[in-house]
Design a protein around this nucleic acid. Sequence first.
DNA 1: TTGAAAGCGCTAACAG
DNA 2: CTGTTAGCGCTTTCAA
Lengths: 349, 349
Amino acid sequence: MVDRSQRVSARKATTIRELAEHVGVHISTVSRALNPETRNLIGPNVVKRVLAAADALGYVPNSMAAALRTGQSRTVGILIPDLMNPVFPPFIRGIQDALDDAGYIAIIANSDGDKEFERVIVQKMQARFVAGLITATALYRDDPAVGECVDKGIPIVLINRGVDNADISAVVNDDRAGIAAAVAHLAQFGHRRIAHVAGPLATYTGIMRHRAFVEAMQANGLPVDENLIVFASGYTVPAGREALAALRGRGTPFSALIAANDQLALGALDGLSEAALRVPHDVSLVGFNDMPLVDRIDPPLTTLRIQHYEMGAAAARILLDELADPRLERRTVMLEPRLIVRRSTAPAA
Amino acid sequence: MVDRSQRVSARKATTIRELAEHVGVHISTVSRALNPETRNLIGPNVVKRVLAAADALGYVPNSMAAALRTGQSRTVGILIPDLMNPVFPPFIRGIQDALDDAGYIAIIANSDGDKEFERVIVQKMQARFVAGLITATALYRDDPAVGECVDKGIPIVLINRGVDNADISAVVNDDRAGIAAAVAHLAQFGHRRIAHVAGPLATYTGIMRHRAFVEAMQANGLPVDENLIVFASGYTVPAGREALAALRGRGTPFSALIAANDQLALGALDGLSEAALRVPHDVSLVGFNDMPLVDRIDPPLTTLRIQHYEMGAAAARILLDELADPRLERRTVMLEPRLIVRRSTAPAA
DNA sequence: TTGAAAGCGCTAACAG
DNA sequence: CTGTTAGCGCTTTCAA
């Protein structure tokens, strides 16, 4: 039997005080020697001895204590609907990497779309001293969590969502350019009757992409037929299938379809094949996101690649900047998507 | 122009001291009233008034201060190679949900497979007072990060990796059963010359699945030909392609192939099609993991579905238990995978 | 049942 | 250049 109680006692970490005793200087001297910002105030030989002792004793600073003292936790919160949705990991990785460079860490919370729960999460994060928040929640307006942050003066950066409040920074994908590229691509292929499976009206991307679709159709001199636009109930595969059924129920023919995201496109693909319609032979299909493996499905999906990772990194950098200087102007960064043409689109019959 | 300085000042959170003044009792009374564990020591009416005041003033406890005082942060660390690898999000979500129920949160770090970096991460986490660690790093033995945790008495739970040290809890997938099911499936289809693209020898799953492969072949009375086993350099698509090239270079024919994971299977699929070999017509292919969308590629991949989410949740529960009582026996939980038969496997020609 | 007091580990004026 | 001192917000003995 191993004596675990002993091991637990071995856990006690070295403190700055022990270091000070070891080196024979005052703890504040150690503190300054350890901090690169204040190190120059200390004699170089003392610094050397402190650093050596820190190394020898395996000293790890207690950031809780530092945070308590300074009010700066070097921690930010990330709020997303669901980590298992494949669009979020790249965002988060981008955020993490950018934060890491600055010595910050992130804590991630999944809201599962529950607005009330989001408030609770924000409170929990606040309790954890988060310095700021990055949220990639899909909702458009009327969000209690965001409001609470603004009220409390907690810096917050939004990813891919609306900014009713101009006093909040955001990073967004250029949905207008993306949809325009998709419509132009289909128009070049001779498609005129293009349908749109839009995202939920309550979501920022749903609204933006729908609006962009209407504009792009008009810009290409194509008819905008309300019968060829259907709003999905969510950003899921089943929602896409249902939306396609609704679309077909209207009886208006179409030769191409732009879905507001890849999952909807996948659902539409299912619906199409159930209706014995072949992609791209009968209907050309365009998605949005370029999720992993959509290049390997049958047929490989033409879609818009979003710079997920870069958007996350940009959001983190903005937050870091605002943390460093809260008086900074709020800003919105827009990144360009790229149309990836694969085999789900083809010339009109 | 908004006066941000004012807003920043508004950020000052309510403290327990203000609450105490507000209610007219001592801060320690407030502390006790707030803590469910000690609430019974306080007069019920006082408790009521404290709770009401806390609500009114929007009091949020400063968990940093509490952590500093008690040494308990209610935070655990998660160490993974890369969040963008699609197998990890479900693990993490499982962990997060289980932790959340207990009021714990997680901080996630990506090691990108760099062992030295892992040590640094563990130190950073320690600085952040993490109470314990869950790691889904792929390495087998000789891991400095794990060793450091054990030395320091930080509870740690391993996901899908080796336990040289029997004194560490782990959650693993039953690789042996999974591979056995795959081999049996192929054997039933009449395949005798089955190849194996194994994972890297330095990884736990690589070794386990390879061993299981050999055993299962023997159990089914099939020949184990060293020429039909190749170890990939990593768990990636390119590594799978290279492994397949190496396999073909040996000139030994095979009618079926089991890859150590889906990414390797995908790479093998590429290599096979480059060699003008059709799946499943010429070669049946089995993966491992059941990653998102492998059911929609061409051909849909037969693979082993791992209970990722449940494994994460189980790991979190074990860690929580050990945190509550460090003297608990270490345990290993094994979850069963399920063979999902799709169209990448077919009867032997 | 409540109050007093000490202190977790660290930083940051202020002195020297 | 270094030491002194005073807390950050909270919990927890010890007294009353």
